[in-house]
Design a protein around this nucleic acid. Sequence first.
DNA 1: TTGTATGCGTTATCAC
DNA 2: GTGATAACGCATACAA
Lengths: 432, 432
Amino acid sequence: MIASRDTPDQGFSPCVSRRDPVPGPDGAPRRLHPPIAVLEYLGYIVAESEWPFEEALATPREGNGGGRAGDHGSRGPVRSRRRADLDRDGSRPIRLPRMKDIAAVVGVSQSTVSRVLNNKSVIPITAETRERVLAAAARLGYRPNPAARALRGARTMLIGAVVRDITDPFFAAAIEALCVVARDHGYNVVLGHAHGSAEEAMALATVLESRHCDAILLMGDMRDQPRLIEDLGNVQLPVVALWQGTRLPRIPSVDVDNRRAIWAGVDHLVELGHTRIAFVGGSRGHGDKRQREASFRARMRQLGLVVPEGYLRHVPNTPAGGGSALRALMELEPAPTAVIAATDVMAIGILHAAAEVGIGVPRDLSVIGFDDQPLAAYAVPPLTTLRMPTVPMVLAAFQMAIDAVEKGAARTVSRQVFQATLIERRSTAPPR
Amino acid sequence: MIASRDTPDQGFSPCVSRRDPVPGPDGAPRRLHPPIAVLEYLGYIVAESEWPFEEALATPREGNGGGRAGDHGSRGPVRSRRRADLDRDGSRPIRLPRMKDIAAVVGVSQSTVSRVLNNKSVIPITAETRERVLAAAARLGYRPNPAARALRGARTMLIGAVVRDITDPFFAAAIEALCVVARDHGYNVVLGHAHGSAEEAMALATVLESRHCDAILLMGDMRDQPRLIEDLGNVQLPVVALWQGTRLPRIPSVDVDNRRAIWAGVDHLVELGHTRIAFVGGSRGHGDKRQREASFRARMRQLGLVVPEGYLRHVPNTPAGGGSALRALMELEPAPTAVIAATDVMAIGILHAAAEVGIGVPRDLSVIGFDDQPLAAYAVPPLTTLRMPTVPMVLAAFQMAIDAVEKGAARTVSRQVFQATLIERRSTAPPR
DNA sequence: TTGTATGCGTTATCAC
DNA sequence: GTGATAACGCATACAA
């Protein structure tokens, strides 16, 4: 699906009805989109089909912007703009006001303006001067230049988020949370993603090299990108890792207790009476998923339950992957009566595939997910899952990062582990 | 769901099993999370429950970081760090190398280093000098200081994305796309969100005021945040608006052709034989959704079909909203045989609620969504929907923005309109 | 209480 | 070909 949803529409015509292309068995490698070049087929863009009751307007249509703007290296040339301070070469270069401008207007020195504007100065300032400066600043619409501040060593109020795969809805939610948390603290979020393992280094290099961030959050396991981890160890910024599964060498981290969570899931099924329980894990063995699988096996062994050959599936972390796992599981003899998926995404794929094949959930098969994504509660049937305390975890990681920034202290390598919660919905029931 | 999923767990104990709190009828206002303060209940964090086979380690546990770091205004104080250049106060302040440092090592002047490093200099440089400079730079691990470059007027290679509501999976997907596209062009994405309409101004103010971005993408309709729009109009940066529904005064935009899309949806249903067709739109009348509803009414009128009182529902753009709309619709007499939802999110809620109530889709009711979110294909049943060409649209918007940045030209107010595609899956069928 | 001067790290414009 | 030097916008030590 994800793989298919942006397939360029060959022979496209507006609003043509078409069937969904087959998702390719077993979830083809998920790409968000085909190479940029492919996207630039023109067919997609369409004339200015104006809204009927909108005023006809005289704005000329533009070309569709198809032609790439040439390849400027990532370190673009520095056009020294302005220098046309005089503002008479048309209209544009009306620069943003600087402190100097305010000073000129008010008739004081630039340093006075500075002192007024960040009124943390120990030095007292005449009420009147302050008043006039503030007024002028407001009138001119003054905004501090962050570059200049940064140059002086100030914080940039940017926090970098390096995400393993932004395509994953779970991380999307995490990003949301981070945005909110960061904003509440006056920070903005800069997004980087590790994008497969191909461009790995590059991925965060972009975020790091241009290290205008005050700190970096590493979201999701990236141990298949060893250079990244190493680089991060050497970076001068505070780095906090989220959802690594296991501890990283020298990096403070925030993790979920996969073991206890999975135990709760297994125990829940066992209490319902299940004994033939399967597990669907990720194919690439990322940290969290690997831990979850190991926990599953350990708990099953503890309970004296055997996990037959074939009950452990490794598929891509997509709905399609979950679907293919389900089909494989149901061909086994005996088939499992319950399955735990390492993520909700796969669990939703299982639900979908079960419905397709005619397997009733939870009548014929109980399903447990992991994460409690927003849509899990609205799956059909509503998905029993292990709720990840995403927001508290993100908050904790953010706090750790910011503390490090503010205290500036040596990097303390700490770790916080959060507990997941079993949310019982209706995808689990006693076996028939 | 979304409303409920971050409800703080009262009386929390690890991995306790609990039932899903009811989502509150008609989808309560969606908040990603309760106020930060509420999140700081301690119960969540848990001891270092180490992974069994991990080495026991001696890192001391930290407190849970619960105490807020005090309220520093968004314009934090500027501690001039370093000044401890000498590197003997412990270990940390090993500053990143500057050009000056390279120059010192190589024994040339700093300007020479600069010329070598951005080898766009017209002036030729001795091969040997260049060699040595590059070598030294590599050895020292030199990274250009973006703040300094920015101060000189260089681009920051940051693009700001102001999103109406990051919680919405649709926008999450859009952000993903933007990240990829931006990265391919050497840009990074700074996320801002308009967060309800409460802190509206603040929301983007953070992104804008600290205008370290080269351009801004406005994703989703924000006309309920008038000051934002106005501010944007006055901002010195290129601004491109996505999914506004209707044209914005002075801002170039990229939109989807809601009219043709909805027509395709209606026609599809009519061709299947439906005549009693309902429409579920957003409650706050945001641009796109409003257009879709208007288009629906227009098309129905054109086809000579009546839309009875009550067939137009306005609910929050959540699964819960869709569910409540469905329940209301099915109580009507006669009940509709098909429904078009203004977004997939609502459509998925409809699917969910239908299953709960025992209404077969598509047997008793056909459902059409809008967007083709990743999970739409994996709904039960797979959702027929109108596919938004998200990636091409984001790409187009990005191109428009970057073109404006690079050409630096006066802001051309253009507009591009993309076509959606009807994707037939299995949530639609002839009426019984 | 305010003004002057200096430096942050780069790039660009001069001299040499 | 290369080196000194002047901005860039802001914060601050120091002089007045």
